[in-house]
Write a protein that binds this DNA or RNA. Structure first.
Length: 437
RNA sequence: GGUCCCAUCGUCUAGUGGCCCAGGACACCGCCCUUUCAAGGCGGCGGCACGGGUUCGAAUCCCGUUGGGACCGCCA
């Protein structure tokens, strides 16, 4: 089939958009965008029992979150008019009747079943797996229409892909053994065959197909854990593919430009959360300052931080100091709580670790620190170093107690930078609480 | 059980007969920086599943073995 590439993602609305589905949708999107073709979204809701409108909505929302926009679909329509299988019933019935009339299919009960011919070698060239051959006698007859009047997956997918002009079918490798059956139907119905490209499966760390047993499987769970959509996209794109130049951190646009379906790998890939964390951190660091703030705000709110008590500029500065520490927005929000609230610091640190014997000398230093001018981290550090030298105190002896009093913990960005951002008044307040100012 | 698919460091991968006694990234470990690491810099560990071929030469081609996986539903 010639013409522009037309690919599709065809989820069934029986659950949220999970990682495996997102991966398939992503590769279809990449190929459509890379070739300048069309990406079509079709809802396979022939399972009357399990399909719901709510799931359909969450799947679309999940794709939007990942930035996978489609050119035709149930919500925006398109030249095919109907993008839900439940709306395309006439088509399935009509083509099934054709098969019935020519004797290629028969009735059993209310169902329509395709008679698989014997002795036929079915083969196709998969863009990623290469040539696949199967003898037709290894196949059982194929149910086309179920007794409830709905088409089966293997049948509906053929009628839909053919009538919607899909010329490239990109889907999970678990469908590779369905392909010969579908090919038989393409031929019987007189439809031209599309090209096929199967994608490697995504496995859990136990090497089993990714499922709910492995924890988070819905893309929304990743959003809620503080992963950026661009990072999840980037990470998923790396499962089964990598750009020629070997770069591993890239944007959606770069991926679309560099993507080559011929370079997709065959081996199933394990979902490695460590790598996702790394990719996410890189994307968090690359985010424009105010955008990073925008993305982090919800996570601060989740842990009841008084975000409205601070200026956006201040909060954005705080995140900049964090330099992506924590890897996810959620953890970054947690690790930086002391910029927003002194209460959390007080709860974490009661001041008991302060060495009584050293308090007097520290008090003198902090007094001088609070009067420093200009109020700059560099000046503070210089002061601390001079002080340490003349008083015979290691910088550490000065910095660590300060870190505890300002942040409530032992880990933070450079403590004088923290102090600078917190401001003179806030610093005075925090030190005073611990009796050090 | 039948059919199909897969097989490079722990993980993601580069590699399509000589450039590979196998390269990168994450993780891990170590060192450095140093006021801490959850930041940064540098380095290290670690792999072609096995056995036969083919070839002057194989991670790359062929066969077999083993090990994984998928499908075999009037689910998709």
């Amino acid at each position: 089939m010639e013409g522009p590439v037309r690919v599709r993602f065809a989820p069934s609305p029986t659950g949220a958009l999970h990682i495996g589905g997102a991966h398939t949708a992503l590769f279809n999107w990449l190929w459509a965008r890379h070739t300048g073709g069309q990406f079509i979204l079709r809802i396979e809701d022939t399972d009357l029992q399990r399909s719901t409108k709510e799931f359909e909505e969450t799947i679309l929302a999940g794709m939007n979150w990942l930035g996978l926009d489609w050119d035709e679909g149930p919500d925006i329509g398109g030249p095919c008019l109907f993008y839900r299988q439940s709306e395309r019933q006439d088509l399935y019935r009509e083509h099934a009747n054709r098969l019935l009339e020519t004797g290629m299919a028969y009735r059993e009960g209310e169902a329509v079943i395709f008679r698989v011919p014997q002795g036929v070698e079915i083969s196709f060239d998969d863009v990623v797996y290469g040539r696949v051959n199967v003898m037709s006698e290894t196949l059982k007859d194929i149910v086309l229409m179920k007794s409830d009047g709905m088409p089966t997956y293997n049948y509906a997918v053929v009628v839909d892909d053919a009538t919607m002009g899909i010329n490239m079918v990109i889907r999970g490798e678990d469908h590779i053994s369905n392909t010969p059956k579908q090919l038989l139907l393409y031929d019987a119905l007189g439809f031209g065959r599309p090209n096929f490209g199967h994608l490697p499966m995504i496995l859990g760390t136990d090497k089993k197909k990714l499922s709910k047993r492995h924890g988070a499987t819905s893309v929304y769970e990743y959003r809620d854990m503080g992963y950026l959509p661009d990072a999840v996209f980037n990470f998923l794109a790396l499962l089964g593919w990598c750009p020629r130049d070997g770069r591993e951190v890239f944007s959606r646009e770069e991926a679309a430009k560099l993507f080559e379906i011929q370079r997709v790998t065959k081996r199933a890939a394990v979902f490695d959360i460590d790598k996702l964390n790394f990719i996410n951190q890189e994307h968090v660091k690359a985010l424009p300052k105010m955008e990073r703030l925008e993305m982090t705000l919800p996570f601060w709110k989740d842990i009841s931080m008084p975000v409205d008590c601070h200026s956006p500029a201040y909060l954005a500065d705080a995140l900049e100091l964090m330099e992506g520490r924590g890897q996810t927005l959620k953890r970054m929000a947690e690790f930086s709580d002391y910029f927003l609230s002194f209460d959390v610091v007080k709860n974490r640190y009661d001041g008991s670790a302060l060495d009584e014997a050293k308090k007097p000398v520290l008090r003198r230093f902090y007094k001088e620190l609070l009067e420093i001018d200009p109020w700059k981290a560099e000046a503070m550090e210089a002061l601390a170093r001079n002080w340490g030298e003349t008083e015979g105190i290691a910088l550490k002896e000065i910095a660590m107690p300060l870190r505890y009093m300002l942040t409530g913990g032992k880990v933070s960005p450079g403590i004088f930078h923290v102090a600078e951002l917190l401001g003179r008044e806030e610093l005075k307040c925090r030190l005073a609480h611990y009796g050090m100012a």
